[in-house]
Simulated assay, not measured.
Amino acid sequence: MGTKIVAVYENGVLRPKKKLNLPAGTEVELIIRPSLKGLIKLFEGVEVKKDAESALNETRERKLWE
Results as ranks from 00 to 15, higher is better:
R33C: 04
G12R: 11
Y9H: 13
G45H: 13
E58C: 06
K41H: 13
T3K: 15
I40W: 00
V48K: 05
M1I: 10
G25L: 00
S54L: 07
E44N: 11
L14S: 04
V46H: 09
K18Q: 13
A24F: 13
V6K: 09
K19E: 15
P23G: 14
K50R: 05
L20P: 07
E10M: 10
V28L: 06
E66H: 02
K19H: 09
L30Y: 09
L20E: 03
T59L: 10
I31L: 05
L39W: 05
T26A: 15
V48A: 06
P23N: 08
I31F: 07
S35V: 04
K37M: 08
E53S: 04
V28G: 12
Y9E: 09
E66P: 04
A52Y: 07
L64P: 04
E58T: 11
V13W: 03
W65C: 01
I32S: 12
M1H: 11
I40R: 14
T59K: 06
W65N: 02
I31Q: 09
I5N: 01
R60E: 11
A52C: 04
I5M: 07
E61F: 03
V48H: 01
L36R: 08
R60S: 11
K19F: 07
A7L: 03
T26V: 12
V28A: 12
N11G: 04
G25A: 03
N11R: 14
V13F: 05
V28N: 08
E44A: 01
P23A: 12
S35Q: 09
T26N: 09
I32A: 08
A55N: 06
G38P: 00
K63F: 02
K37N: 08
I40A: 01
F43R: 08
I5F: 11
R62V: 04
K41T: 12
I32G: 11
S54G: 14
V6F: 02
R62A: 07
A52G: 04
I31M: 05
R15G: 00
R33I: 02
L42N: 08
F43C: 15
E61R: 10
E58D: 10
P23D: 12
K18I: 03
V8M: 06
N11Q: 12
E66S: 01
T26E: 13
V13G: 01
R62P: 02
L64S: 01
E53I: 14
I5P: 00
